[in-house]
Design a protein around this nucleic acid. Structure first.
Lengths: 76, 76
DNA sequence: TTTCATTTGTCCGTATGTATT
DNA sequence: AAATACATACGGACAAATGAA
């Protein structure tokens, strides 16, 4: 899964969808960390702000939760 | 307190006034942080640019002060 | 205990595009 | 034309929390 910077859908929404799928498919398992912001930046070639926004959406949905200094985890 | 996008007064001035009141009322206490830019954006449904302008005004008045990397605080 | 790397939190400056007034 | 405002996106810096060395 990659990102299309030319697509009408914002990049952070595209990445958010990818994260949702990675959780749904079990690629990212409950109680396990999702990729860090730095990793997301590298994996998808995006800025940190974009990576953070991409995580906010699944977080608002209760799919993941964030702990400062540790990371973001899939809700168990 | 909410924002009226139809009002003649610019939104950033409205939010600035709200912040002044939250300080005056003690809702935002001395030496305590005010909401972050992101939080203001969410709380009032405004853009970052607008949130930052809204903070400038109370800052210029000496009501709050900003520390990069930490946040903006009510003057003690 | 101190130090260090990692990660998230926040702020700063800038830029492009759109829309409204 | 200019100011206001939104949305998106980039890059950088400093701060705070965590955990490991």
């Amino acid at each position: 899964m990659t990102v299309d910077h030319e697509a009408p859908e914002p990049v952070y929404q595209q990445v958010a969808s990818i994260l949702r799928e990675r959780v749904a498919s079990g690629g990212l398992a409950p109680r396990r960390p999702i990729p860090s912001e730095s990793t997301l930046m590298q994996e998808y070639g995006i800025a940190r702000e974009t990576a953070r926004k991409a995580v906010w959406l699944p977080a608002d949905e209760g799919l993941v939760f964030t702990v400062q200094g540790r990371g973001t985890y899939v809700t168990g």
